[in-house]
Simulated scan of single mutants.
Amino acid sequence: MSCPRLIRVIGRVRETLRWWFAPQRVREEGPTPDYRFSLANERTFLAWLRTALALLAGGIAVQQFLTELPWALRTTVALLLVAGGALCAVRAVDHWVRTERAIRRGDDLPLNRFPALLSVGTVLIALLIIGALLWPR
């Protein structure tokens, strides 16, 4: 990655983090919407956090309780679940901020591919576990 491009990427990351940790900036985006919309957006955010926590718990459970699986496979699945949980938590706050800004500005809601990626990743991990459990020892 070239230096100017890296500087632009770092700048975008810093700007995104500013939005995450400065909710007063979101309020400056436009008029206050009907509270029902903001509260619905918050409930969606909380649902994403519950999903993240479930993935984290699933990773811990796989590592602790699927001891009949080979160590490398068990650890790989656990790490994939924990990483998915972390990614889900980060994606939750980013989606909340982008959606809240769009609501306040009257823009279309942001598109989101993450649910599809999360679903496909979950299916792949499930197939990996099923294959490991059915594999003769």
Rank of each mutant, 00 (worst) to 15 (best):
T44Y: 04
I10T: 10
L111M: 05
I7W: 03
I130Y: 13
L53Q: 08
T99I: 01
P23C: 14
R25F: 07
L46Q: 13
N112M: 00
P23D: 12
T75K: 13
G58W: 08
V123D: 03
L117T: 03
R5G: 10
G121I: 00
R43C: 01
R74T: 04
G121D: 04
G58A: 13
E29N: 07
V90Y: 10
T75C: 05
R36K: 06
A83V: 15
V123E: 02
F45A: 05
Y35L: 14
R36M: 09
L109C: 04
T76Y: 07
L39C: 02
G84Y: 01
I60R: 09
A54F: 09
D108K: 14
T76R: 10
F37H: 07
L79C: 11
A86Y: 09
P31Q: 12
A126C: 12
L49D: 04
I129A: 03
R12W: 12
V62E: 09
R113W: 15
A116H: 14
A116T: 14
I7F: 07
R12S: 13
L118P: 02
L56I: 09
L79I: 05
Q63H: 13
R137K: 15
T67Q: 03
W19D: 08
P70K: 10
I130N: 05
D34A: 15
R91E: 11
V120G: 11
W48M: 10
I129N: 09
P4V: 05
C3H: 14
V120N: 05
A102F: 09
W71Q: 14
A47C: 07
A72F: 13
Q63M: 05
L56E: 08
R137M: 11
T16N: 03
I125D: 02
T75H: 07
Q24H: 14
V120Y: 12
L133E: 08
R137L: 11
V77Q: 03
T32Q: 12
E29S: 15
N41Q: 00
W20G: 01
Q64F: 11
T67Y: 00
E29M: 14
E100I: 06
I125N: 00
L49W: 11
G30A: 07
R50W: 05
A54H: 00
R101Q: 03
V62G: 03
Q63W: 07
H95Y: 13
A47R: 12
R14A: 11
H95I: 01
L69R: 05
V82C: 04
A116W: 13
A72H: 10
R27S: 02
W19E: 06
V26S: 02
W19P: 03
I7G: 07
R74S: 00
R50I: 08
L17V: 13
F37T: 08
L80D: 02
Q64D: 06
P70W: 07
Q64S: 07
A22N: 14
